[in-house]
Design a protein around this nucleic acid. Structure first.
Lengths: 344, 344
DNA sequence: GCCAAAAATGGAACAGCTTCCATCCAGTAT
DNA sequence: ATACTGGATGGAAGCTGTTCCATTTTTGGC
């Protein structure tokens, strides 16, 4: 295996110059640069990543920490982050908590091995100790879906999302609106679930509409669980809501399928709105609030790389709000309870 | 930052002994081991990953290469791989081709930077040059969904899967069976698509059933594309098949939704079978051939780590077949064309 | 107790690149 | 011409562990 020494020798320059020529840092004459490039390609030289990292202190490697890689939102955000990192020539080291299964080992062991230039923490709720631990490692961190105290964070306004979704339903004439939200459990993406729920409750209150205990459901964000919850919710025709706001598109899929299986027509007998912007929403006609997760991933990487490269310089806003957009499709409409059903 | 030298000094041993004590390799007395451990924890010592990798040549880092992170099969397999790697104390570096967008940079640049102990290549079709390039890098590779020439591979018997799915439909009494498969494009997971299609064709031929050009569809494996294809397929009532075998569950979802939107009842008017084992299949009642992707991920890592740790020792079978299972739900039944429709 | 074998230990040579610092040199201002 | 400036270059000291090899200490069998 050819080393940079060999390249330098073949190019007739010093090792120092060869290093500068290859990295592009420092000043090198055009002649030397070309000689080095020629020598490197002739020898098939590939720089040792480890040696380079050890000497320079930079690894060109970013860690991405997320709770699930197998949910649409996270996978799509990851894709965006991957793009941005590839384009910048960085490697992406993936840490998938898988719920909470690897939470401890990631936070306790993996992240601290000082091999990363930065960390992207997605939907991560850290306690004080964990935050301290990470910050103590001294590497830049950017969060998505926080806020994480002391860490610059990218997020959408979840309360606003909840309001907007709910208001969409209310403005169509619905008064019996249910909400299917995510888990409350702390340590998870608590803020997100509770934010959307708060927006729902605010919108209902503002419109003077009643909140019913039975219309406020909790699921694990999966379509299957949402299906079960929705089926229960809709079982009693008398107590049935005319619309349901789901905190994610995958949950909305479950809700739609549950309604169909009960023989309810959408949107005539039940309007459904989700959050995310899942592609499959197109073929289900799902009205949703698109949050452009891919975009969140690339933007988060931009922010993070700025921190990494500016070496702790100015950070931009501590809390950056990302755009969302209401996409109206055919799963929402004014309530049109068919004849034969009794209203409220 | 404390280095191993500091630890050694505090523990009153040589650097060499400290290293052995910390890594567990080589023989160290219990006394020394404890002294080193105590010193390390007192100093809050964290080993430098880069220095360690440079000196030892091992990075405890595995690269996972896949064409999409945002499709259920790949995300689930990745989750399995992640588990196995976490448990073994390895990092996972993710390379997502995103179709073919990053194919070249991954294969040409990223993989060759000799920073990985091994590579897991999922659904990767390599040409001769690429294979050579990767093998030349000298790091162990295990493939999933090959076969990749010269590389140990884990896969399911796609031809058999195609036959089994098709025979399930035939045995229910269907004779008008369509197939919705994946792309043919080379460089992609060509073998998989063509294997399942071959199985379909074989089964049809064995049963003496006709293959129709119009019943052999191609999509990009996504639900949305499958939806469109299926809608076209089913448009003409006269030429309509009574059953459709989809090469993935996500495609099957699209097919089911398309059929529903056309007012066709499932399974009475159209039976649908998929491949994968997607959880959402439960609420759609999808009959499928489960291929346990999570399990494929963990098994592939096992194989790879064996190669990595045995340092090129015995490899196990070059081509390992993974298990699949037919899961019958409510999307398939005997054809029961309702009155008013004309048969064949 | 004695000797061979095994275990434990330390010194020092790496692993392969980056970068500080001093030096050299060509171009420019005076 | 002379002094000055800044680019280009090379020498060598890191960066931080790992591991070979030789040496010393233990251990176990008789």
């Amino acid at each position: 295996m050819a080393g940079i020494r060999d390249v330098a020798r073949l190019a007739g320059v010093s090792q120092a110059t060869a290093s500068r020529a290859l990295s592009g840092k420092g000043s090198v004459s055009a002649r030397a640069r070309e000689a080095v490039a020629a020598a490197a390609s002739e020898l098939g030289f590939v720089m040792s990543y480890h040696a380079s990292s050890l000497a320079s202190g930079r690894s060109h490697n970013i860690g991405v920490v997320l709770p699930f890689v197998n949910r649409w939102y996270f996978a799509t955000l990851l894709e965006g982050a991957n793009s941005a990192l590839m384009d910048a020539g960085y490697d992406l080291t993936l840490y998938d908590f898988q719920g909470d299964r690897y939470r401890e080992s990631v936070l306790g062991d993996f992240l601290l091995r000082k091999r990363l230039d930065g960390v992207l923490a997605v939907s991560l709720q850290l306690n004080a100790h964990e935050t301290e631990q990470i910050l103590a490692a001294g590497i830049p961190v950017v969060g998505v879906g926080g806020p994480l105290p002391g860490i610059p964070t990218l997020r959408i306004d979840d309360v606003e999302v909840g309001r907007r979704a709910t208001n969409h339903l209310i403005s169509l004439g619905h008064s019996r609106v249910a909400h299917l939200g995510g888990e409350h459990e702390l340590g998870r993406n608590f803020e997100i679930s509770s934010g959307r729920r708060a927006g729902y409750e605010e919108a209902m209150a503002e419109a003077g509409l009643p909140l019913r205990e039975a219309w406020s459901l909790i699921s694990d964000y999966s379509a299957n669980d949402a299906y079960k919850e929705t089926k229960q919710l809709l079982a009693d025709a008398e107590e049935r809501p005319t619309a349901i706001f789901c905190a994610s598109d995958e949950m909305a899929f479950g809700a739609i399928l549950a309604a169909r299986d009960l023989g309810l027509r959408i949107p005539e007998e039940l309007s459904v709105i989700g959050v995310d912007g899942h592609e499959m929403g197109e073929i289900l006609g799902l009205t949703t609030i698109d949050q452009f997760p891919r975009n969140q991933g690339t933007r988060a990487v931009e922010r993070l790389l700025a921190l990494v490269q500016d070496d702790g310089g100015a950070a931009g806003p501590a809390d950056e709000l990302m755009e969302t957009r209401l996409v109206v499709r055919s799963s929402t409409s004014a309530p049109r309870i068919p004849a034969g059903h009794s209203g409220s």
